[in-house]
């Protein structure tokens, strides 16, 4: 991502009052354990490493949508 990476984006998103509680699933090529732990520790609800299949997206996103309903 230009300008900032996904972790920084997530940090900035968490400071916006109206965006708090928005579930975020990271989709990234950076799949190392430390990056996953970092993302989850600052509020990501899931982490999908590219390349990904449509089923992987469904598997991660569907439970989050069910919680919101």
């Amino acid at each position: 991502m230009p300008a900032m990476d996904g972790i920084e984006f997530l940090r900035q998103l968490s400071t916006i009052e109206t965006a708090k509680g928005t579930p975020v699933v990271m989709v990234t090529t950076e799949g190392s354990e430390s990056r996953v732990v970092e993302a989850l520790s600052i509020g990501a609800k899931g982490y999908i490493r590219k390349p990904f299949t449509p089923d992987q997206i469904k598997e991660r996103v569907t439970p989050l949508l069910e919680v919101l309903r």
């Binding site: 990234t28 090529t29 799949g31 190392s32 490493r49 590219k50």
Partner: peptide
């Protein structure tokens, strides 16, 4: 290109992280 680079380094333990 980004995905290939990420996938490649992810397969080499010493590079992944």
């Amino acid at each position: 290109c980004n995905m290939v680079a990420g996938n490649f380094k992810g397969k080499i333990t010493a590079l992944a992280d």
